[in-house]
Nucleic acid binder design. Structure first.
Lengths: 229, 229
DNA sequence: CGGCCCTTTGACGGACGTCAAATAGCGTGG
DNA sequence: CCACGCTATTTGACGTCCGTCAAAGGGCCG
């Protein structure tokens, strides 16, 4: 999965436009590539530059002292790592590459200044912010009030939606580089239980997973699970 | 619990200042009072006015079609219902009064315009935003990766922190108008299990609860539970 | 070929949910 | 003042969803 022009999605086009048309000297990104399993940043680290994913998948996660881990979101191409970084240089999370990841970084001080100056940029940021918050709240509901089946079905469907909106899903087929431990840490379950649920889904003809891709074989069936109970 | 001057906390002082010093005709709040159990707004409702809590406690919650409910946050005096409302008039949650609640509302369009005009107001908003997001992420970690004991202990401690920062806690004593079903819906547990855990906490000499107030009887003990495991 | 990571499966255990009943508190109205 | 109805809390017995532990097999890469 690769967005050819590199920079992308809601916030980014506005930034690029500002950079090109109005302030050619600022908002120039710098580019980075890191292999799978490497960290883009760690919890608590101070970031003067704000990363935006251009290619590959990453996790945004927190780890407790005893090793329990919660993935807060999967970062896809076009995602800003966190809008919070605009206003607080201390990263709340670790960001870890799932696949090889290419990303670009923008200077926080420059973005912040541009935000107040260009109201279209500001409007784009606020839209990303709203989505980020809605996603966080939905995660809390999933973890607090939904069963394992529902959580996993919803994770699959929401990833497909996000990819489709960016043109990265080919019908019901999508890239799916997640290991089961990623799914477990995102849904608050154990790897063993994720394996059981996914096997059940496969046996029920809901999904097919091979070779780091996933096909939704029964969309209505999957949707039914997310409403169930 | 009542903040005498009515308006309050991070975002509000800046708004009041803007209103008084620079735009006396805008940002004039209108005041409301509602009894316990009444709703300030419902999921999906369109709000042109943004509510800020002045007195009493409320919940911000979502309900699934089958009745399962998740409380996303408890709103305390000084809290804005949601910063998302600044940019999206469709409320994501229902907001329900726990006690009698007094609140004030500000016109969204006016706040939004003032935000871009007065950068101190903008800075205050971004601080509230960062806190809101951190709280949402912490909730996800609690629900995904912590035990019932830990969740409840952390809820108590975090409420005390929030109250203390606003001058509403007297030492280790605090108002505590929550019913056990509120705690259950906030921690993703059942009322029955909350009852058991709280009884256990009381028997262990960690907390005392009577007459809608809570005393932390053993702060180190409670804190130890939140780290445990 | 050997080592590592990932996945799967089974047996078992535990944390938490469900169901049910008893008790207490509290406001309302006779 | 008591009767009542409602809501909240507590407790016990039991059930279940998911975790833990363990072992085996597959795929990938050096």
């Amino acid at each position: 999965m690769h967005y050819v022009s590199g920079l992308w999605v809601q916030l980014v086009p506005a930034m690029v436009q500002v950079a090109q048309e109005r302030s050619p000297t600022i908002l120039q990104p710098s580019e980075h590539t890191i292999p799978a399993r490497r960290y883009i940043c760690r919890e608590g680290e101070l970031l003067e530059d704000i990363p935006i994913i251009c290619r590959g998948w990453a996790t945004s996660e927190m780890t407790l002292s005893d090793g329990r881990r919660q993935i807060l979101t999967f970062l896809l191409p076009g995602d800003i790592v966190s809008t919070v970084l605009m206003f607080d240089p201390a990263s709340q999370y670790s960001v870890e590459a799932i696949t090889e990841v290419r990303y670009r970084t923008f200077k926080r001080t420059e973005i912040k200044a541009a935000l107040l100056k260009y109201s279209d940029l500001f409007n784009n940021l606020s839209r990303v912010w709203v989505e980020e918050k809605m996603q966080a709240d939905q995660l809390a509901i999933d973890l607090g009030r939904r069963t394992a089946d529902e959580r996993i079905a919803r994770l699959i469907l929401s990833l497909r939606d996000r990819l489709a909106r960016r043109g990265f899903a080919r019908g019901l087929l999508m890239d799916f580089p997640l290991r089961q431990h990623h799914i477990a840490d995102a849904t608050g379950l154990t790897v063993v239980h994720v394996s059981r649920v996914l096997s059940e889904f496969r046996r029920a003809g809901l999904v097919e997973i091979n070779d780091r891709s996933l096909t939704i074989a029964d969309l209505t069936g999957l949707r039914r699970i997310t409403n169930m109970r």
